[in-house]
Amino acid sequence: MPVFVVAAAMVGFGSLARDSGFGFGVTVISTATVWGLPGQVAFAEMFAIGAPVLAIALASSMANLRFLPMSLSLLPLFRDDPAAWRWRYLLVALMSVNTWALTLRHGPSLPLDQRAPYFIGLSFVCMTAGLAGTALGYHLAGTLPFFITASLIFLNPMYFVFLFAGVRHRNGVLALIIGAILGPLVHQISPDWGLVFCGVIAGTAAYWLDRSIGGGDE
């Protein structure tokens, strides 16, 4: 299921990238090296409007800032496996929202030396699907009816809504709810820094609420 969703989402990016004037090579490679849809979309859209180089790099970078807290919360799972820990800087390059969420959920119940192989296997399957989807989208650009393109793009957020709807930890659930409410509100005040503010406010509020209620599932 995650494989299908990644491929479909990247079909949307592939066709956007072609419309933005990217070559086939850059389009496909960007899926592997940036590996985060909001950053890639910012890259393509800023390039299409002829933005300055530094502005493009900054916008893509900001769009993928979520990877900082994500890699931070994922790494402790690999800490006690020396082989995986040695490759930690490469492991995080493979991380996507998908592989992060699934590894956080299933990783803790796996033996130490099975966690990295699980994560790497999952990541490679997802990335292969993403690359195939990107290539397909590049070739299909402009040929799909609007409702199909829109549905492919809608699939990605819906996948994550229902993936996160299964989160069990109370502090995670609180952070998700507060973040979802704040997201659109803060975005209207500051589109650039909105996500960072929301993450910190929602995360902190959820963390303290969870601790002050106490006696939860932690």
């Binding site: 996160f164 502090n171 952070a175 973040g179 997201g183 929602a202 995360g203 963390y207 969870d210």
Partner: peptide, 16 residues
């Protein structure tokens, strides 16, 4: 706390 921040950011992104 960082894990909570990650969830908060992702939820904000998706709801946006």
């Amino acid at each position: 706390w960082f894990s909570c921040v990650a969830y908060g950011m992702l939820a904000a992104l998706i709801s946006r």
